Simulated scan of single mutants.
Amino acid sequence: MASIARKLRPVASRFATRSSASAASWRPSSFGLRAFSASRAAQVKKYTKDHEWVELSADGKTGHIGISEYAAHALGDVVYVELPTVPIEVAAGDSIGAVESVKSASDINSPISCTITAVNELLEEAPGTINKGPEDDSSAGGWVAKVEVAEVGIKDLEGLMDAEEYKEFVEE
């Protein structure tokens, strides 16, 4: 099977991705101190040119992998998702599964080197979940795999795009 990027046709309408990182907000308190809110800014979400994403948690050791909203939209209605076996160690670019839609079938590749520790079994029962929330890492979302990341995987992040770079990439 080909990767998602090779299977997608250019989409006529521009499809914007939402940034998962929000800036920490502050406001001066009555005592002259700044109050900072906790946000997802500590989490890092990166994208590949093949339209996969990885989001690491604040600890930088665990995270989620999935396909981008752009890919899910371009693929159309997903009818089958092949999930990886767990646990399994993979290198950046290794195929970890596949997604089949009414339009095509594509491999899902790992954006970074990691160990896959769990999969989203909801996708086997309801593959259309990936269309509803492909970048949602909640229990009802369309993420594909939970991962543990070592130092090599952290270095792999350097070669990936952040949300703004990815948005520019898909608009080209």
Rank of each mutant, 00 (worst) to 15 (best):
101 S>A: 08
108 I>E: 09
124 E>V: 12
101 S>G: 13
118 A>S: 10
110 S>K: 07
111 P>V: 13
105 A>D: 08
71 A>Y: 02
127 P>Q: 13
150 A>V: 10
90 V>S: 06
63 G>D: 09
155 K>I: 14
82 E>M: 07
156 D>C: 00
144 V>E: 12
82 E>W: 01
144 V>I: 05
140 A>F: 08
94 D>E: 07
149 V>I: 15
132 K>Y: 00
144 V>W: 11
85 T>M: 09
146 K>N: 14
69 E>V: 03
113 S>H: 06
117 T>N: 04
70 Y>N: 06
142 G>V: 04
100 E>I: 12
72 A>S: 08
107 D>S: 04
120 N>C: 13
62 T>C: 10
132 K>A: 07
56 L>V: 10
165 E>R: 03
77 D>K: 01
62 T>R: 08
75 L>C: 00
160 L>G: 06
168 E>N: 06
132 K>G: 01
70 Y>T: 15
160 L>E: 09
134 P>K: 10
92 A>P: 03
78 V>I: 11
60 G>F: 06
155 K>Y: 04
106 S>G: 07
70 Y>V: 08
128 G>Y: 00
56 L>D: 13
69 E>L: 11
76 G>F: 02
149 V>P: 12
82 E>N: 06
167 K>P: 01
110 S>E: 05
129 T>H: 15
100 E>V: 13
122 L>F: 10
153 G>K: 14
128 G>S: 03
103 K>I: 08
134 P>G: 13
151 E>I: 01
142 G>K: 06
165 E>V: 02
110 S>Q: 03
59 D>F: 02
148 E>N: 02
120 N>T: 12
68 S>I: 04
119 V>F: 14
79 V>T: 14
136 D>P: 09
66 G>L: 05
110 S>I: 09
154 I>Q: 08
150 A>C: 01
153 G>V: 14
117 T>M: 08
72 A>F: 00
115 T>V: 04
133 G>C: 03
84 P>E: 06
150 A>P: 10
109 N>K: 06
156 D>Q: 13
67 I>G: 04
56 L>M: 05
104 S>P: 07
66 G>F: 13
65 I>C: 08
148 E>F: 04
166 Y>E: 08
104 S>D: 04
106 S>K: 12
149 V>Y: 02
72 A>M: 15
101 S>L: 00
165 E>M: 07
131 N>D: 12
89 E>Y: 02
159 G>D: 07
80 Y>S: 06
61 K>V: 14
120 N>M: 00
63 G>V: 01
126 A>C: 12
119 V>M: 12
58 A>W: 03
113 S>E: 01
104 S>E: 11
155 K>M: 00
81 V>R: 00
163 A>V: 12
105 A>K: 15
113 S>M: 00
64 H>I: 10
119 V>P: 04
140 A>K: 09
146 K>Q: 13
150 A>I: 11
124 E>K: 11
76 G>Y: 01
133 G>A: 11
104 S>L: 13
150 A>F: 14
99 V>I: 09
135 E>Y: 11
89 E>T: 15
58 A>G: 08
97 G>E: 07
166 Y>W: 03
83 L>I: 15
113 S>V: 00
73 H>W: 02
68 S>Y: 10
108 I>F: 14
159 G>M: 02
